[in-house]
Design a binder for these strands. Structure first.
Lengths: 336, 336
DNA sequence: GGTCGAATCTGAAACGTTTCAGATCGGATG
DNA sequence: CATCCGATCTGAAACGTTTCAGATTCGACC
């Protein structure tokens, strides 16, 4: 039924070893053999069986990626950057969504372990160090994305979320806002707590007295943002914050939709809004969104490079790369 | 080094065949054996080698997905729907981006062929029928996404793009617009030409005299939309269209940004805008965007189901599923 | 006790590749 | 002409699983 390397060898009049060499190290084979083998491959429509190759060679040509939320354009950009780097080396990216669900997360990690991927890029939700340690014992390195590996047990590529949170809150304070609400959740997500911590430190160190209130959400989605906005509206006007720092742009975009009363948009006059990630849609929002930018494609590309370095040289020490976030001011905080 | 099924068998005091049976059909094994094998697996930290399993069984547990544009939230939703359906059956989704590049597209198809994926979901860019036919000959079915398979050679799941184009144009005409511009490209993409054809038929059959002009773009991205908007602005006011139908929402969102003069938004008063896909960000745009909605997650889920049906039963005739698009009117065309 | 069938288990073959120790070939060298 | 060496090729072993024909066990039944 299926064409194997043996059929190619027979047609080309060489041994299977030679065919394999043509495929893997053509330099070690005479030009005439290369040509005969290639024409046989062409003629038979031979396609290498990756399972057999991997079984014998013990090396796969795929890299796993476990994302927190596949629908978040931020991760799409990170994946894009990683994919670009991977395809440049002939590798493919296997892609799974944990959707902020610990069970799905371990499911994908286990799957990648069975597939013996070359390495694993992961934006973790739960505590995955035990599982990742096990993968490493089996020769599969991991790089954490968007989360600093405090103990240095794994390499990581992230943005300084605390600094980002501080940037956001300082910006709001500098625009004269004093009653700030942090909207985000769940607080099982490290980035969320870090961004909050940064905001808190900015408020505490502020020259002006200011307050920081926490408005929790169940997830970092547009829908949750809309709901949070509605909840704020349900309050007396006097009790509403005059600024909101949303844990990411999806929430912030939802808030923009939620913070509308009788067709009147409260942003930015009554309530200023800052998001996080600066996804491409932030600039195109109802009120263009001020946001803390992360260099998403760069994060993905850097992580992939580090991962492949570690895969090639297992002894290599781990590396923590932290990019600096950058505030992009737009209309949602009254910027031009 | 690595723990194999043989080590498990030895520790559990059974044969390798029995271990395999515990893994694959526990019903055929006595309860006591199941228990001993499982405890041995636990104790040794055994993980099944997927390459060997696939080599022998000839079946993989992954499905390939080739998307036109991984950064487009529409495809993220389609993938989400497909992934949901796949994980319900214990399959993972291998994911590649063609980025509207024929070379990358064939690269991924070839890769999936080598990996012997269970099946292939593809939103095609170039002409891929030859390659897909070859995959099928090797037992790998494909389902086309977002493109009707005219000759019925492959199953497909799509939305009636011509009808969608007609909906968009009719809506603009009903709002009193008469000089319509279609913004989109490249015209190598079937959806683009279909949407244009639908718009054209609506204009030609209109009770009122109206014109349809084509403003070509290089790709379906936000940036191209901004550029197209700028080009329209560069014209004399009299030469500008009074409505734009953009081939997708990314373009439309870009247009909204581009169609601003001296801080004044021309949409919808001078120019109405309709997009296509109704991505989650359309409603959150600077001017909430009227759009032709596609049931994206449903498309992905349906395609996956059909694909897996065909994988299980290769003789099964192909099926063409066409969903009806739906117009969602918002402020960008002067709707409430 | 002998026979039978179902339930359960065994162990070797096979999947298609890569790898590697050794064979072969064809000059170049003395 | 004998020897040697590098370039090239060969063919079998090995990777870890699934599969399957046959072996074994165990009750039930006569």
């Amino acid at each position: 039924m299926s064409v194997s390397i043996r059929d190619v060898a027979t047609l080309a009049g060489v041994s299977v070893g030679t065919v394999s060499n043509v495929l893997n190290r053509p330099d070690a084979v005479s030009a005439s053999s290369v040509e005969r083998v290639n024409s046989a491959i062409e003629q038979l429509g031979y396609v290498r069986n990756d399972a057999a190759r991997q079984l014998r060679a013990g090396v796969s040509t795929t890299v796993g990626f476990v994302a927190l939320d596949g629908r978040n354009p931020f991760f799409a950009d990170v994946v894009g950057g990683a994919e670009h780097e991977a395809t440049a080396r002939g590798l493919a990216v296997l892609h799974g969504n944990s959707d902020e669900d610990a069970a799905r997360e371990t499911l994908y990690i286990d799957l990648f372990e069975q597939q013996m991927v070359r390495g694993l890029l992961i934006a973790p939700f739960g505590d995955v160090t035990a599982r990742l340690t096990r993968l490493r014992a089996r020769g599969i390195p991991s790089v954490l994305i968007d989360r600093f590996s405090g103990d240095g047990r794994f390499s990581s590529v992230s943005v300084d979320s605390v600094a980002g949170g501080r940037l956001a809150a300082e910006h709001l304070l500098s625009r004269g806002r004093r009653r700030i609400a942090f909207v985000g959740g769940s607080f099982d997500i490290r980035q969320v707590t870090d961004r909050l911590a940064g905001a808190r430190s900015a408020v505490e160190n502020s020259a002006h007295p200011a307050t920081l209130e926490v408005v929790p959400t169940h997830a970092l989605t547009v829908d949750e943002g809309v709901a949070a906005g509605r909840r704020l509206l349900a309050r007396d006007r006097a009790d509403r914050p005059d600024a909101v720092f949303a844990a990411n742009d999806l929430l912030a975009l939802g808030l923009l939709q939620g913070l509308v009363v009788d067709g009147r948009m409260l942003v930015p006059d009554e309530i200023a809004v800052v998001g996080f990630d600066d996804i491409p849609f932030a600039a195109a929002a109802a009120v263009p969104l001020t946001s803390v930018r992360q260099p998403s494609a760069l994060i993905g590309g850097t992580a992939m490079r580090i991962l492949l370095d570690e895969a090639d040289d297992p002894g290599r020490p781990t590396r923590q790369t932290v990019f600096a976030p950058e505030l992009v001011a737009r209309a949602s905080t009254g910027a031009p």
